[in-house]
Amino acid sequence: MKAAVIVFPGSNCDRDLAVAFEQAGADVTMVWHKDTALPEGIDMVGVPGGFSFGDYLRCGAIAANSPICQSLIKHAERGGYALGICNGFQILTETGLLPGALRRNGGLKYICRTVGLEVASADTAFTSGYNKGDVVNVPIAHHDGNYFVTDEKLAQLQDEDRIAFTYTDNPNGSVADIAGVVSKNRRVLGMMPHPERAADTGHGGTDGVAMFRALMDQFATA
């Protein structure tokens, strides 16, 4: 698998995400936000966590309109894969590649701790290494992770089995406990929790490893 990780001013999980991809066996290229094209032959684009552009205007809003994100949108529209984590999820909703929006946490506080996630759908390239209903422990670290979609869109997400992860104990007020959703073609995943921070025994947990391994398997058998 050839992966690109986008680096914005204010990204702070870009190298962690690159290491998680590399440890699973991927070739990783870092891409700067001002670049206008992704490298040739990229299978997967990682949109990392952090505080791109200082969260000015809205989290992810400025990044979503950066030159590289035009290429990201084209990549996704061609059927390419993308994984947005935390600020990356916010960016993917701002580009319109994923539905909904991330609001300020219900309790107004920045929350940084490990939470329980239930695998709500194992029918994606990202979650096929888990079983539906599995509970995994993955850290969150966000101030604006309170997922919102309209009732109508929520019903659509549920009908189409597009909710990848839910919180076992909702920390931020997200609609229907949603922690991560996939695009209609199931190839773009956005999630607030950080699987790349649960990918090495030194992290205190390795429940995120199965996601990166499953992605590698996807491309090995393709």
């Binding site: 205007l57 809003a61 701002e94 539905p99 929006a101 609001r103 919102f148 979609v149």
Partner: peptide, 9 residues
């Protein structure tokens, strides 16, 4: 529509 507001919310 393009930047200043997120019309989802």
């Amino acid at each position: 529509e393009k930047l200043l507001a997120n019309t989802v919310i």
